[in-house]
Amino acid sequence: MDQKEGAEDRGLAADGSIRREGAVDRVQPAFVPVVEATGERLAEAFARARLHSAYLYGSIPRGTAIPGVSDLDLLVVLHDGPTDGDREAAEELGAALDAAFPVIDGVGVLLSTAGDVLSEAERDDSGFFVACLCTPLLGEDLATRLPLHRPTSQLARGTNGDLAAVLPRWRGQAAGATTDDARPRLSRRVARRVVRTAFTLVMPVWGGWTSDLHRSAELFARYQPDHPERVAQVRAAAATARTPSPDPAVLAMLIDDLGPWLASAYTDAHGTKAARPGG
């Protein structure tokens, strides 16, 4: 056990680095068939010469997923840059899994490359994501070639220091989400990112890592007591992440009120994430 008995679990190993949060053996029995099928279908969807490795992330490998509510999150790492064919394969794979397994509500497939994950520019973004938040499913585990990560301001900047740049895209998506089917999916995605940003704003002060959104909101409340209105909004965002809302007012609160405040507070506390080459 890495934490002292009775101490608050901060998600750290004995050396103070952030420990990996998921594992295949934590997958709940209800989700085992979809995980097994995912491994098989990934190998079929992407040519062996293209596919470097694949990972699970999110609630399923953490063992906290809710049948019929939680989605399946995948990262597919290729040997070189994704092609239109790769993107099409990812979309078809996600749609097929979603249709075949009612235990999940949607599938998200991210595409990256081994070179990007291992690059210095991505050390505190994609590198941290794979090393600490992803669970290997197929191929070489790139975490063995990545450095340790600690809950620092540098990590906070690398993970969520670009919220201001994301807000305009969300506004455009919200304007196009005009139905009660479209708004809940967008509200869940936006709420997750907003709560994670709120947590990483205070992460270096707390000195640990969690991906639990409810706990993230409560840690924000602990370290931002002078902003009760924002605390209430972050708690509402955590609830929306679990139970998405079709209410346009919820999206407006997240994107037009809480989001800009968080972006400004984040820049003041940690700075802004450096632009990526070609980004």
Score class of each variant (00 low, 15 high):
6 G>V: 02
11 G>D: 06
28 Q>P: 00
31 F>Y: 14
34 V>F: 05
43 A>T: 09
43 A>L: 14
44 E>G: 00
44 E>V: 12
46 F>S: 03
48 R>W: 04
51 L>Y: 11
53 S>A: 15
53 S>D: 09
57 Y>W: 14
59 S>G: 11
60 I>L: 09
60 I>D: 00
61 P>T: 05
61 P>V: 08
61 P>N: 06
61 P>S: 04
67 P>W: 06
70 S>C: 09
72 L>N: 04
75 L>I: 05
75 L>M: 08
80 D>I: 01
82 P>F: 03
86 D>A: 05
89 A>G: 03
94 G>M: 13
95 A>T: 10
96 A>T: 14
99 A>I: 00
100 A>Q: 13
103 V>W: 10
104 I>P: 06
108 G>H: 13
111 L>Y: 04
113 T>D: 03
114 A>H: 04
114 A>L: 03
117 V>Q: 03
120 E>A: 15
122 E>D: 12
123 R>C: 04
130 V>E: 01
131 A>G: 09
131 A>I: 00
132 C>Y: 04
135 T>M: 07
136 P>D: 07
137 L>I: 06
139 G>F: 11
145 R>H: 13
149 H>F: 11
160 N>P: 00
166 V>S: 08
168 P>I: 12
171 R>N: 00
174 A>V: 05
179 T>S: 15
183 R>L: 11
189 R>F: 05
193 R>I: 02
193 R>S: 14
199 F>P: 03
200 T>K: 09
200 T>Y: 12
201 L>F: 08
202 V>S: 10
203 M>V: 02
204 P>K: 12
207 G>R: 11
216 S>P: 07
222 R>G: 01
227 H>Q: 15
229 E>Y: 06
236 A>D: 14
237 A>S: 08
239 A>R: 15
242 R>D: 03
242 R>P: 00
242 R>L: 13
242 R>N: 00
245 S>P: 06
255 I>Q: 07
256 D>P: 04
258 L>N: 06
265 A>I: 01
268 D>T: 13
272 T>W: 01
273 K>L: 11
276 R>H: 07
